[in-house]
Amino acid sequence: MENLKQELKEKIIKDLNLEDVDVADIANDDPLFGDGLGLDSIDALELIVMLDKDYGIKITDPKEGKSIFESIDTMAAYITENTKK
């Protein structure tokens, strides 16, 4: 799980062009949106594409996104849970 969290941080920085952010700047429970990492609605769409492209997980209900993308912790938990199936 810790490896996955590290991987997610690296992917988010790379895929979302967060050039002024380091992996060490992102705590596992930091909010990804709003006051935390400050991601926006386009970033949310990119995260949905990332889950599909890199982990084979399709989010069919957009309402799910809010809880899945709350933090690195919640993303990692969702990916772990859904790739077991």
Binding site: L16, N17, I42, D43, L45, E46, V49, D52, K53
Partner: peptide, 9 residues
């Protein structure tokens, strides 16, 4: 086929 929303905008 993974269209990027961030590029599309």
């Amino acid at each position: 086929y993974y269209p990027s929303p961030a590029v599309f905008v």
